[in-house]
Design a protein around this nucleic acid. Sequence first.
DNA 1: TCGGCCCTGGGG
DNA 2: CCCCAGGGCCGA
Length: 321
Amino acid sequence: MPELPEVETVVRDLRPAVVGRRVVAVRHGAKRLRRPWDPAWNDAVAGRQVGGIRRRGKWIVVELQTPPPNPLPRGGRGDRTNHPVLVPPPPAGEGVRGWGLFPNPRLVVHLGMTGQLTAAPAADPEPDHLHLTFALSGGTELRFRDVRRFGSATLYPDEAAVEAGFGDLGPEPFGLDTGYFRNALAGTARNLKAVLLDQSIVAGVGNIYADEACSLAGLHPGRRADALTRAEADRLRESVEAVLTAAIAGRGSTIRDYVGGSGLRGEFQLAHRVYGRTGEPCGTCATAIECVRLAGRSSHYCPACQPDSPRRARKAQRSPG
DNA sequence: TCGGCCCTGGGG
DNA sequence: CCCCAGGGCCGA
């Protein structure tokens, strides 16, 4: 479900709802996700404070930290010793070791196809397919729900481990270096669709926005990447950035399951040019949108605006419309 | 580099 | 019943 714009919307929604709060308790379901949740992680998380939340590609990183000591009441120094320490100590038993092994815990979440990460009042009824619940101070719960269980939630001990976990994840698509993108395209015989879906080339683009970017760029998604001219490659890079920016502004696309961090659906599906519009008239030239299978995924395009060969592309370039 | 697979549910 | 679905990983 969620590509970069959806994940970005989740993160922006969650930030004001969770940052600064402490994790009071962790609950997890029995069914395993892509990566099973290790129950030992509960102790590493409980008592910590949410320091921040951010996005990387389609991944969500929740930054946890050891909460600072409570501010001491003003007044005489006597208070300093008498005041009870309200910061909960690490859980008993192996808890001390649990905190020690996770100095700067990072909760890394991937939403897969149907994952939902939301902040909700603890009093709200629990939905079905709920796999993880973080009860936060102030009565808010951070909930991870996922019908198909292609998503995952993993705890890493620190930033270095997160980076290692990301492996060869490519750069963010915003402000992407022109030369880098040209070279990436020139270096492979795969089609544009496959390249745009490849997270090691650019992070965050999925099936919807790959199609939308090709449409915006006027390029057939089946074109060989290494056959693009420099101008075409640059146009594609700009189109990826433009469509993602517009989609974030529209709070992402809800086809079926996607909701943002506050449970709201996206709006950008209403602005799709080609995705999910097979048979409908192209908004530019009224030709019927077509759908083919590329890189194992449904791929939508306008056969008139997105010519399938470089030769026809050059022709269309000379006489647009 | 590609297909199959992991899952559940909705629609034809 | 069949096929389809915002993704990623693993093995041929």
